[in-house]
Structure formats: C-alpha cells, structure tokens
Amino acid sequence: MHELSIVANLFEILEEKAKEQKAKKIISVKLKVGALSGVVPEFLETAFDIYKKGTIADKAKLKIEDVPFKIQCQKCQAEMVKDDFVFICDTCGSTDLKTLSGTELLLEKIEMELTS
C-alpha cells in the first residue's frame, strides 16, 4: 500500500505544473500504469480521491491507462505480451529479451482550466 505515497508525489508535480500554467483548476489527470509497475490502479484511484480534497484538483478526474508487460525477443525479433512475466520467448524459447513496456508509472498529461 504505497499508493498514497505515490499520489503525494503526483500532487507535487500537479501543483508545480498548475502554477507554471497559471491554472485555476485541474480538470483531469491521465496516468500510464504498467502491469509490472508494482502499484494497484484501484488503490491509486482511492488515494487520489482522498488526496485531492481541498487542492487545485478538487474536482479532477483520474484516468488510468493500463499498460501491458510487453517484451521483444532479441533473437527472433518477435514481440509479445506476457501476463505471467515469464522471460522466455513464446516463439523460439530464447531468454535474450528486451522489455518494451509495462514497468512504467507515468504522469502522461494534465487537462486544466486557465485563469485567463
């Protein structure tokens, strides 16, 4: 349950960006959460709703895009989604693989209402 700590970091970035843009309020926040990011999207949502009260993102909507764990075989170049996180190529059995996505925990974009 480290999602609250992650949401605290998120709000640091949100407040900084809102100040930069002279925003009146934040309308929506979009995150990208990888299957192997180590966080639970539902807990992020709960933590976000608790944390946002009284902030510039008081009414903001949190959108989370789940990113699958995707790897590419460096031997046969096949790309595949691995729900079981097994690091073996489905096509040729090689273990020489590159992670393409699924470990990220990103703030992708912010939609805000400006003062002027």
Binding site: L106, L107, E108, E113, L114, S116
Partner: peptide, 14 residues
C-alpha cells in the same frame, strides 16, 4: 479556457 499539457513525468522520478 482549457488547456491540456503533455507531462510524461515518472511518478517516482524524485
């Protein structure tokens, strides 16, 4: 006036 900004910042970046 609405604006959408692309951030692409890691949440555990700090």
């Amino acid at each position: 006036k609405k604006k959408e900004i692309l951030v692409l910042e890691e949440l555990l970046g700090s």
